[in-house]
Simulated scan of single mutants.
Amino acid sequence: MICIILAGGKGTRLQSVVTDVPKPLALVQGSPFLDILINNLKNRGIEGFIISVGYKKEIILE
């Protein structure tokens, strides 16, 4: 099964907390949110991911 993750927003509501990275990379207990999400989905049997990026996509792709 493949999952599509929408990760293209600007994160305007999080700007006061996360200023240097896009919101999918916001740290949650020391790990980027996107990593936590992908690992949780892998543990539930998801085998592939399509990550739809937009704002600051270069940072997410790195």
Rank of each mutant, 00 (worst) to 15 (best):
Q15M: 07
L27Y: 11
L25C: 11
G54H: 10
P22I: 09
V28L: 15
P22Q: 11
V28W: 03
P22F: 11
G9A: 06
F33M: 08
M1A: 08
G54S: 10
I2D: 15
I38C: 10
G30Q: 01
I60L: 12
I5W: 07
I2R: 13
G48A: 15
G45E: 03
G8F: 10
E62N: 15
A7M: 14
N40T: 15
G9I: 02
T19H: 04
S16P: 04
R44E: 07
N43K: 15
T12Y: 13
L34M: 11
L27W: 10
N39V: 06
E62A: 15
L41Y: 04
E58C: 04
L37N: 06
V28A: 13
I5Q: 09
I4Y: 08
I59A: 11
G48Q: 09
A26L: 01
I5A: 13
N40V: 12
P32K: 04
G9W: 02
Y55H: 12
I38H: 03
V28Q: 08
L41A: 02
G9D: 02
P32R: 06
K56W: 09
G11R: 01
Y55M: 05
F33L: 13
Q29P: 04
I4R: 13
G54Q: 11
L14T: 09
I2H: 09
T19V: 02
M1I: 12
E58I: 05
P22T: 08
L37F: 13
I51N: 00
L25W: 09
L6S: 10
V17I: 06
L61Q: 14
K42W: 09
K23T: 11
E58R: 09
C3H: 02
L37K: 12
L25K: 10
Q29D: 13
L41I: 02
V53M: 09
N40G: 14
P24F: 00
T19L: 00
F33E: 05
E58S: 08
A26I: 01
T19K: 11
M1D: 06
S31D: 05
T19C: 05
L34D: 02
G54N: 07
E58W: 06
D20P: 06
L27C: 05
P32F: 04
I46V: 14
I50Q: 02
P22W: 07
A26P: 03
Q29S: 15
R13H: 05
Y55I: 06
T12I: 13
V18N: 11
